[in-house]
Every structure is written in C-alpha cells, then in structure tokens.
Design a protein around this nucleic acid. Structure first.
Lengths: 210, 210
DNA sequence: CCACGATTGGACTATTTCGTCCAGAACGAT
DNA sequence: ATCGTTCTGGACGAAATAGTCCAATCGTGG
C-alpha cells in the first residue's frame, strides 16, 4: 500500500533497463514458485535465478507478497492469452478435443509434475493472500468464460442442444481439468488427467445434436 | 532415516503419556497445516497449539519433514475411514447422491475455505516430499477404489450398465471432486463444487439401466 | 519404595530468510 | 560533456525458524 510498485501508475520511475530487470525477476520467481511452490521459494533463490541483487528486488517490490502478486498476475495473463488462442474460435466438439489434447500434451512434457500454474498457486495462496486469491478467482472465471463462450457458439450453430447449460458445463469441465492436474501431479502420471477430461467431454458430447 | 520415530517398530519407547503427547502434536499440526498450509506452519506454532515444548517435538519426530509425514498419515487414515463409512455399502445411485450431499455440506461449513484435507497437502507436497506424495497417491487410489467398488456393486446388481467402466468413472468423479474443492476454495463459494459433482454424477446416471 | 528410563520444560545455538542501506555505475536529457 | 536521476551490487542488520541440550520430573517394574 505504501509504495507504487505493482499495478499503480508507475509515478515516474520507468527505464527500459529497469523494466527489463523487473520482468526478469518476476519470470524467475514464477518459474521457481511453479516447481517448488510459493512458500518454499526464497527471495535469495529468486535473486540468484534472475541474476539480480537484493536492492533490485526491493526496488520493484515492496515485499515478498507484492512479488507473489506480480507472479500471479503474470501467470494469469500467460494462461489467459494461451487459452484465448485455443478457445476464442472454438465452434465444434472436435475443437474441444484438440484443446484437450494440447493441455494433456503440455502436461505430459513434465510427466504431470507441478500441475496447473494457476491451480497450484490457488491452492497455496487462497487461504493466505486474499488479493492473490481474488485475482486467481477472476482468472479462473475468465478461463471458464472462454469455454462457456465456445459452447454457446456451438449452441447457436445448432451443434449443441438447447437443453445444455454452457456455464455449468464449462465449470464442470474446468473442475475436471483442475482435479485431473492434481491427481496427475500426485501420481506422477497424466492418466487420471486424461480420464477426467474424457469423462467431462463425454458428458458434453451427450448434448450434441447428432 | 536415523531415528526410529515414524512407522518403525517403536523399539522400546512407548508410554501412554508419550503416545498421548505425540497424538496431540500431530493433531495440532494437522489442524494448523490444513488452514495455513504446510510450509506456512512453523514448529513454534505447533508447539504452542499442542501445549508442548520443543523437546517433545524432537522426541517424537526427527525433523519437520517427519512431522509432516505423520500428519499426512493421520489425514489419510481419517479421510479413508470416513469415506469407507459412506461408501462401503454403496449400492445405488441414490447412495451416491447422499455421498455427494455429505461432502458438500461438510465443505459448506467453512464456506469452501481450506479445500480438501488431502488435496491441499497433495498440491503442496507433491513436488517437495516424495514419500508424502506416495502416501497421498496411495490414499487417493484407495479412496477412488472405494467408489469404484461401489459402482461395481451397482453393476452386479444390474443397476449400472455393463458398458460402464467403474474404474474410469471413479477417477473422473474423484477429479471432479478435487477440482470442485479447488474452485470452491478459490472463489470462497461451494457452488462450483456442487456443479462439478453434479456433472460427474449426471454422467454416471447416463449409465443407469433405467 | 527405589532405581532407571521415559518424559518434560525451556533456554540456548545455528541457520535461514526477510528486509535495509549506501556508495558507485549507468543512463538520459539538455 | 555534465548533471541529476535511476539502477545496481552486495554488505549489513533484524527477525523468524529449525534444531540442540540438559537438568528436573514423572511413572512404572522390580
């Protein structure tokens, strides 16, 4: 609240160099927090991984919480941008299957470890930092909204039955995805993630008009 | 590995008094770690909440990791016992609905905060403590197995179609549950958890024979 | 009721981690 | 080029946290 660091109007302090260091810090922190968890990542880890120094960290972020929030915002933007690319033109069940495949493949690269960039932070931060929780909730809502919008387009084009509720189906699909991530992470095997997504998609398929 | 603390044969050290303190410590730690997260819980918090002292902590647990593992084992046992009570006699779709209601109601008491006792630990520990991860994976498997067994009984009694795959349905249901927990925790609202469970149950319903 | 090990309390140390500070280098506008 | 501002490096301090140790107490078998 004291310093103008995060999303504030950056008062006057902004140099390309400074912004570059800031970006380097947030990205390094995001990577570390993704694989180790937020609380298990120390500022010294971030400092080393970003090739910066303590003063830079505190130049750009009032404290660790602010850095964490910046990481959340970064991840939210990344995920939303990526998902928008997949979902904004979604108009068919096959498109949904392609979306599924992309997610599974991405997660298979790490054998399911680490889970969803958003989900793991949500689990750790929800009961710890209300501002972060809110951002994450909004991001989940936006993500789910992208899916719902696609389902609605399918409905308008007649591919999906009128009886289907796009919003509820989207929430169910998102839950299956997040639960799948979690089980896959715990088992170190993406099979449960596939099974979960398949079940949700199978349910959506039952609403196809033919 | 050095001391005989956790699940080892307790060599010689066991007095009712000692066992009681040990239990008090683990239970206090479990509560704290549930609401604050594992890494955000300090040994001093545990000491204070359990009304013990440092020496007791280190009398029973070689280090914090061992305590965390004991908490995982405790939670695993509690959840499994509770779920067994609900699921071991599951024979009908209505039974599944009752199970759903019980979970939702329990989570509603805290407005969805904290999530699943198992899920939140799984998310935080999976990439941090492989032994804990394994225990959690086994517990999830057992839990899912309870559901699958119930579905199989429904299949044998003819209520559930032969075409249904109890194992996959159980995994899908578990993922919906865990994802629902996570979304509910993030949104501080159990609605997404209900929606997710309803979707999974709706899908199972489609396999009912009549 | 005595002896001995288990148990306890809490002071103490070591280490980690967050956060501060300041002197000097780099940069950009004039 | 020069001056003021921003950026940088890293030493430093403060607080939190993990982990150690030992003297005192308890409690149970003999």
């Amino acid at each position: 609240m004291t310093r103008g660091t995060a999303a504030d109007a950056p008062s006057r302090r902004l140099t390309s160099r400074g912004l570059a260091t800031r970006a380097r810090i947030v990205e390094a922190a995001a990577d570390l927090m993704y694989v180790r968890g937020v609380n298990a990542t120390t500022l010294d880890d971030v400092r080393a991984a970003s090739g910066t120094s303590k003063s830079q960290l505190y130049q750009h972020f009032a404290d660790k919480d602010q850095l964490v929030r910046a990481v959340v915002v970064l991840r939210a933007g990344q995920v939303l941008e990526r998902e928008q690319g997949y979902l904004e033109r979604l108009r068919s069940f096959r498109g949904l299957l392609r979306w599924r495949d992309a997610l599974v493949q991405r997660n298979a690269l790490q054998n399911g470890a680490y889970g969803c960039a958003l989900g793991s932070m949500a689990s750790e931060l929800s009961d710890q930092d209300d501002e972060a929780r809110t951002t994450l909730a909004e991001t989940f809502a936006a993500w789910t909204g992208l899916i719902a919008a696609g389902l609605r387009r399918m409905q308008i084009s007649g591919a999906l039955a009128e009886a289907a509720d796009p919003d509820k189906l989207a929430v169910g699909l998102m839950a299956a995805l997040q639960g799948g991530y979690l089980l896959a992470e715990t088992q170190q095997d993406i099979a449960p993630m596939e099974t979960a997504l398949d079940m949700a998609l199978e349910h959506i398929r039952s609403f196809l008009t033919k």
